[in-house]
């Protein structure tokens, strides 16, 4: 993976635009889907956006009984194949970070698919708390832009 999410909790104002953008980007027929990004609002910070890390050895993919979670080579995202998913919630339970959600109504797993390489949560973040950056820029902390 050459690009990762960089989350700067100090910049997050917990406005919820990323959650909305995600829900609408993954909706169908005008109905928003479940948001794959969540802001954790109960800590001392205003909010911490939590998003799938696209693990190299992913527990969700290993736990899936039907092999519905597959690596998308183009975007570097682990994607849920909706046709294969049986909604058993094994991936939800196996994810060590709690970043997989169930789509209400459909009862299928939903996880971050990087919006096909252009994450909409990043596009809608007004403060730059989430950025989709090359890996080298993302692993430095504190990064220059946070100060």
């Amino acid at each position: 993976m050459d690009r990762i999410f960089r989350v700067v909790p100090e910049k997050c104002v917990a406005c919820g635009k990323c959650e909305l953008a995600c829900a609408f980007a993954h909706g169908q027929d005008g109905v928003p889907g479940v948001s794959r990004i969540r802001i954790y609002r109960r800590g001392p910070e205003a909010g911490v956006p939590i998003i799938c890390l696209q693990c190299d050895s992913a527990a969700c993919a290993a736990a899936c009984s039907v092999g519905a979670i597959k690596w998308n080579v183009e975007t570097g995202a682990l994607e849920v194949d909706r046709d294969k998913c049986v909604g058993c919630m094994m991936c939800v339970a196996a994810c060590p970070f709690g970043n997989i959600y169930m789509e209400p109504g459909l009862d299928k797993a939903a996880k971050c698919d990087l919006c096909g390489g252009k994450p909409q949560c990043v596009a809608f973040c007004p403060t730059g708390a989430i950025a989709y950056v090359p890996t080298e820029a993302g692993v430095k902390y504190p990064c220059e832009s946070a100060v």
């Binding site: 109960r42 094994m90 994810c95 709690g98 997989i100």
Partner: peptide, 24 residues
């Protein structure tokens, strides 16, 4: 799931909400 290769059985102990809190 705990017998499955590549799955950490520790993850089954918490719900997804609590896992997010622990991650933060």
């Amino acid at each position: 799931g705990s017998r499955r290769k590549g799955v950490n059985a520790e993850a089954f102990k918490l719900c997804d909400e609590c896992k997010r809190r622990r991650m933060v």
